[in-house]
Structure formats: structure tokens, C-alpha cells
Nucleic acid binder design. Structure first.
Lengths: 344, 344
DNA sequence: TTGTATGCGTTATCAC
DNA sequence: GTGATAACGCATACAA
């Protein structure tokens, strides 16, 4: 774990100048003999290029940051799984930032772009505040936002279409004959929370169903709190016959609570989740879920960023990924699920 | 997205030397007046310290790498979730490497330590080859290995105790009266595969049960292939009454296949997974699983690395995290699980 | 083709 | 306390 050889070390060993060493190492034209000596010396010394010095000179770090609220959330994880190989293939390392949904942390990540330790950033902000927009306007490196930013913001933008997504779910529930469809949402001041809340209201309207405040309950985006929200909702609206949950974790919480309350799924209450994570397929009953294309969004974001890094300035782009509904047992397609356990 | 101000820019603006700027920025003693001018100029210009130049000078990047086979694997994810905040709190960024279980990629990661873009590395190798050991012996930065390395390898080492873990599971199954206990394992040339295979054999011996080759089937560590392995095993050993699976994904595959085969879980076949991931709690029947302490191992690894980064050279340390068994419905504690769905 | 010298942005060591 | 100036390791314009 010593100091490690530099091009100076090699130059001495090979009896040439550091310039020649650098040239050989970069494949620039050199005499055979020089090349041989340099490569031999480099090999003997176990030379490895210093990425930091190289970055300082070249002004490129070959690193890209990915910032999201929480690595534990399967939706972000799905993005990460797509982003990582795309960047790796292009020769970029991935720096991971977990902001714990703290706005100040997100701002700090944007600010830190000024430190130039990455060439670009992919961010999934939970909220987009004025502070975000101000930082984005003066960002010191290319940024791709997964989420929605106002038109004119100078960043590439990848959006889900949760409006259509919620619509798909509600159409499905309506077609199954459900009329008292509750919404279990996350905080309304988050991007997904606001979008899903508005979409729910709109989709009800399109179906000719009344919007009833009582049917909406707000918690956060996690299983335990989601379950609590469902419990509250069940107390208030006993004749509920379906639940639209703002993500799969909330939906799992809903299954917990419905079971505890003796409500059968889907016979008494049909449940739809959102994000179509791995958990949806593993749960019982398996969970119908609206896929918002997390993986596709991740890939699109990575590709937009790489394009920007390769081609420099250009007009900001907007990519919208279409959603689709994955129907499983929790909305009760007959025969969709066989019994798997033999618990009483 | 322009060039961005440097200390030189600030020095000009404030009418002082770059040395003074640097001093102020680093909190070294300066005259009030100088400090004021410098800070004012820095503020106006929106100065942010260049991390690359700083790293070149200081020989510290404040970055740490975490390398594992696959971000999608919940066990690695559990480690990541613990490692990330520990590093963040200590002022380190996290660089993520996904090696797809390719040995050459792991070696490459070790090699790349020579580039000095990180101060240290936490790695979860799937196999530990001679090449690994050679690279570890000459690693250019502190390394913590999660897994097992031979004594004398100059790295900190965090181990799970899968031997005890498998023993816990088999004791449990034995206590439930199961005697034909199959093993569904991953490749034997991987660290976990080899360890779990040996532990299974040993635990059977301790219970006075014969080791029967027919009861062992090898696949990989994923759900689909795990299911296929189980199918093969069921064909070969129809009177099987329990399955020890080398991880939760395999166990989920087992549940799939058992259901399709009309075997009830746990009545006909009890199933135990390993790693105790989120999926275990979400599945149906919920999955009994041996926790090997992924989260604890992640945290221990991060803390070992930080300690090493802070205190420099010292004797390599070994930390072993004890396992525990989480009993759920798939091993049929009566009443452990209520019916949650109403599928036929 | 090769070597010398300069700069990338900081920090740190000197004299003053 | 402050200002020149020298590294850190590499790439490159320019001179030889």
C-alpha cells in the first residue's frame, strides 16, 4: 500500500522523459524502442494511471451521480439497476446519493456539482421547490431529472405518466364493478403524491363517479404508515370495495390491515398497487400494480445524460414513459392465483 | 455551466493572494478584514471548492467503493442500505460497482484501486480466487472483504456464519419432525454455495440424519433457476418433506414450484430460505428464513473501513456476525399466519 | 520522434 | 498575517 509509481518513476526506469511515457501510455506515435522500454518499465512497476490527476487535467471525472430518496425503495432500485450497466458500458463510474427525502440534502447534491467530482447527475427529486429550480438553472454539470420540472428548466427530463397509470387502474376496478374506490396516497407536496392525487380525481370524473374526500387518505409511502392510513379509511368508509394505493409498499400495508380486519381480497376489497415492484409478485394475494416503467425511466435518463456528455450543449429533452397495468390476484381475475399455502 | 470560479478568481476580486484565499477557506488564522473580503468575493462568485484538485493535493478523495455482484439481490441491497449512511455521516461518497458475478470484473475493481479514485473499498466477492488474493496482497488502498478470506490475507474481513445458520434451520425442521430435508443450493464454487453445502452436511450429521446426495440439487441463486432445481429434486425424491434453500430467491422459486405441483406448504413440504430479505415477509406463505445479518455485516464493514481510514495501518481484523432464524408460516408454526386472500 | 516547460486548482512551505 | 512559489500526477504546446 505504498506510494505507487508515477510517470516520473517510469521515466527514470526507462531512461526517457515523462512526456514520452505519457505519449506511450496514450497511444501517441513513438519509436518502437521507446515504447518497448516504457511498457516494460510500467509493467515491472505495476503502474496504474492516477485518475485524480488525469481528471484535474482533462476536466472529466468519468463519474456520474445518481441521487434518490432511498435505496431501499424498489422503484428507485429498479432505476438503479438499469442506470448502472448503461453507465458502466460507457466507462462511467456511479456515485450514489441517498437523500432520505430531505430537500436540503437534494439541494446540497445539486450544489456539490460545483465540486466537479462528477461529470453529470441523474436525480429523482421528491419535491421540486424554488430552490431546486434555482440550482438547476445554474447547475455546473448536466443534470437529468426523473420526475417533472416546469417547461423551460434547462435540464433533460424523464417523466412517468401517473395520470394515465391511475386511469388504467381505475378503469380496471370500475370494469370489475367496484364503485367505492379509495385512494391511499403519500404526501401531497411530493411530486408523485400530487400527481397521483390529481389523477385519481380526474379518472373518477371520466368514469362518471363522484369525487368524495372521505375516500382519500394521506400517509407516507411506506408499508407501516400506509397500513395505518388504510385502517383509518376503513373505519370512515366501511363500504369501501376497492383501494388504489400510491405505491406497492402502501398496498402491502393495505393487505396487512385488510387481513387483520377480516376483509377478503379481492372479494370484499380489491387492491391495486403502483410501481410494479418485485414485492408485488411475491406477495399474497399477488398484487395487481400499475407499472410506471421505473426501469425504462432509469435507462432513458442514463442515455439522455450520456448523450449530453458526449455532445455537449443542446436543447433540453423530455421523455415520457407510458405506464401499463399488471393484473394479478388482488383484483381478482378468477383463476389468476391458485392457493399456495395450507394455513387454515 | 461555465468554467466556474477558482481561488485565483477570488484572489483577484478580493485583491489578495491565492494563499490568503486558501487560508480563509480553510479556517486558518487571518486578519478580519482579509477574511471579510475573501468571503464576500467567494459568495458573490458562487465559489465551490474543486474536489479533484483538492484530492490531488491531499491524496484523499473522500470516496469509498462498494463492489458486489448484483444490486438487485436483496442481501447486497441490505448491506448497501447500512453502508451508505455510515459513510455519508463520515463525509464519504459511495461509488457503486456491480460485477455481475464475473471474476474478471472483481479483479478489475481491485486493480482500479491503483487509480486512486477512492480511499478504500468494501467488496463482497462471490468467489475468492488466487487472483483475488494476489490483488489483495498488493492492494493500493484499504479493503474490507465481506465473505471469507484465508488467514493472513492483509484485509479486514466480515463473515457470516452460515454454518451455524444452516444448523439453526435444520434443527428447527428436525424438531418439526421432518426427516427428508432437501438442499437447494447455488454453485459450489462460490463462497456461499460451498459454505452452505458443507454446513448442510455437517448439520445433518449432528442430527443423526444420513447425508443423501439425492437430496441435494444445485442451481443458481435466482428464483427461476431455483424453481427448476426444486422441480428436479421433487421428481427424484417424491417423499421429500422439507427444503433448505440457499437463499430467499431460491425459496420463492420453491414455493412457486411446490404450488404448481400441488404440494402444500408447510403441511407437505416445509420451506426455509436464507438471508431474511423483505421478500420473505411479503411472500405467501410468509417465508421462514435464516438471517445471516446482511445489514449488520454491511455496517460492520463500513465501520472497519472508516476506522482503517482514520487510523492507518493496523492488524487486519475479523468480525463474525451471528445468524438467527426467523420463523414464519412456511415452516408451519400453527397460527403463525392467518389467511389473507380468498382465492379458492 | 523526443524533451522541456507549463497549467489544471489546491494546499503548504517558505521567507517577508 | 501575507504573498510568492513549489508541489500533487498528468497531458500537451512548443522547441529541439
Amino acid at each position: 500500500m505504498g506510494q505507487g509509481p508515477t510517470i516520473t518513476t517510469i521515466a527514470q526506469r526507462a531512461g526517457v522523459s515523462i512526456a514520452s511515457v505519457s505519449r506511450v501510455l496514450n497511444g501517441l506515435p513513438t519509436r518502437q524502442e521507446t515504447e518497448r522500454k516504457v511498457l516494460a518499465a510500467a509493467e515491472e512497476l505495476g503502474y496504474v494511471r492516477n485518475a485524480v490527476a488525469r481528471s484535474l487535467k482533462s476536466r472529466r471525472t468519468h463519474q456520474v451521480a445518481f441521487a434518490m430518496a432511498d435505496v431501499g425503495n424498489p422503484a428507485y432500485l429498479a432505476m438503479l439497476r438499469e442506470i448502472q450497466p448503461v453507465l458502466k458500458a460507457a466507462g462511467y463510474r456511479l456515485v450514489l446519493h441517498s437523500t432520505d427525502a430531505v430537500v436540503a440534502d437534494e439541494i446540497e447534491v445539486l450544489h456539490s456539482l460545483g465540486e466537479r467530482y462528477v461529470d453529470g447527475l441523474i436525480m429523482v427529486p421528491l419535491r421540486v421547490t424554488e430552490a431546486h429550480l434555482a440550482m438547476l438553472a445554474s447547475a455546473r454539470a448536466p443534470v437529468v431529472i426523473i420526475g417533472s420540472v416546469p417547461e423551460g428548466t434547462p435540464v433533460d427530463n424523464v417523466r412517468a405518466d401517473s395520470r394515465t397509470g391511475v386511469r388504467l387502474a381505475l378503469d380496471h376496478l370500475h370494469a370489475l364493478g367496484r364503485r367505492r374506490i379509495g385512494l391511499v396516497n403519500g404526501p401531497l407536496d411530493t411530486v408523485p403524491g400530487a400527481a397521483r392525487g390529481a389523477a385519481y380525481r380526474e379518472a373518477l370524473g371520466a368514469l362518471g363517479l363522484p369525487y368524495d374526500e372521505e375516500l382519500v387518505e394521506i400517509g407516507d409511502f411506506y408499508r407501516a404508515e400506509g397500513g395505518r392510513a388504510v385502517a383509518t379509511l376503513l373505519d370512515r368508509v366501511p363500504d369501501l370495495d376497492a383501494l388504489m394505493c400510491a405505491n406497492d409498499l402502501i398496498a402491502l400495508g393495505a393487505l396487512d390491515v385488510l387481513r387483520a380486519a377480516g376483509r377478503r381480497v379481492p372479494r370484499d376489497v380489491a387492491v391495486v398497487g403502483m410501481d410494479d415492484t418485485d414485492l408485488a409478485a411475491a406477495s399474497w394475494p399477488s398484487l395487481s400494480s400499475v407499472s410506471l416503467g421505473s426501469a425504462e425511466r432509469g435507462r432513458a435518463a442514463a442515455e439522455l445524460l450520456l448523450d449530453r456528455l458526449r455532445h455537449g450543449e443542446r436543447e433540453p429533452r423530455l421523455v415520457t414513459v407510458p405506464p401499463h397495468l399488471v393484473v394479478r390476484a388482488s383484483t381478482g381475475r378468477a383463476g389468476a392465483e391458485e392457493p399456495r399455502g395450507d394455513a387454515p
